[in-house]
């Protein structure tokens, strides 16, 4: 499948997942957002040598995947596609930091390798939690949570607008790209000149669309303000979810569970 189509269906797929109905999906979007933020903050707060202390935190994404009935493959694939930047920026750690910190059955491990691995683990944890947030929470839900959190209305409206038209315009772009590819042979048609014509035409069409939208919303009484009617209630399960997960995160931050278990096993 062409690249473009793939990317398009990728967003579409996550979006479709977010409208499922599981216990996780039904949790208040604001609660999920805040819990995810706390999770990310705590994960990145570990110093760069504390690999084993990060391990227990895999419980969160694994729990969301299994309880939210999210296909594991999708999330894994996305994690591996995303951001070569992290791999690049961490790549130098093993070369530059050669202090030996561990010796595992005679093989010395340098601090650089440890910190590189910890960057990658943090990367997997933070990225998967962001992806899982959107896979288990509808985007409009996240936006109303943001509104509740006092994020400026213009910004929230922008998010909603972009979300709504993202799919419409992406389809339009996909049609344009297909039309180009069908008539492009080899490199021809992919050059920068054609690209500018495509983008320019696409931009003009988008601006015209915004005029039609404006016309349509005016005829329904638009006066410069967009009002949302939202009922956000906190259920008992929401509060339990929030308290439970945040306290687990904090306990894991305070106590080194992995090491305690390891010690116990060694003594045994």
């Amino acid at each position: 499948m062409p690249n473009f189509d793939k990317e398009y269906f990728n967003i579409g797929y996550l979006d479709t997942l977010s409208y499922r109905q599981t216990f996780i999906h039904r949790i208040n979007p604001g609660i999920k957002l805040v819990v995810t933020l706390v999770f990310i903050l705590i994960v990145v707060s570990f110093s760069k040598y504390e690999i084993h202390r990060l391990m227990p935190y895999f419980a969160f994404p694994v729990f969301l995947i299994s309880a939210g009935e999210i296909p594991t493959g999708v999330i894994l694939k996305k994690i591996f596609i995303v951001s070569p930047f992290v791999l690049f920026a961490g790549m130098f750690n093993p070369m530059l930091d050669t202090t030996i910190v561990y010796t595992i059955s005679g093989v010395p491990v340098s601090g650089g390798w440890v910190s590189y691995v910890s960057i990658i683990i943090k990367f997997i944890l933070t990225i998967s939690s962001a992806l899982l947030l959107i896979a288990t929470t509808s985007f409009p839900g996240i936006c109303s949570a943001l509104e509740k959190l006092r994020v400026p209305k213009v910004f929230v409206m922008q998010l909603l607008f972009i979300y709504r038209y993202l799919f419409v315009l992406a389809e339009e772009a996909m049609r344009i790209v297909r039309a180009r590819n069908m008539r492009a042979f080899g490199k021809h048609g992919r050059d920068i000149k054609t690209f500018i014509n495509i983008i320019g035409t696409f931009l003009i069409r988008s601006i015209e669309r915004s005029e039609r939208i404006y016309h349509a919303i005016c005829s329904r009484g638009f006066d410069g303000r967009i009002r949302l009617l939202r009922d956000i209630k906190f259920k008992f399960t929401d509060i339990i979810f929030a308290l439970l997960s945040v306290s687990v995160f904090i306990i894991l931050r305070m106590y080194d569970i992995a090491e305690l278990i390891g010690d116990a096993v060694l003594k045994f």
Partner: peptide, 15 residues
């Protein structure tokens, strides 16, 4: 062009 809100409910409620 007409359905500009993120959900059906929001859109019908707009007017």
């Amino acid at each position: 062009d007409q359905l500009f809100m993120p959900t059906v409910f929001d859109d019908v409620a707009f007017g």
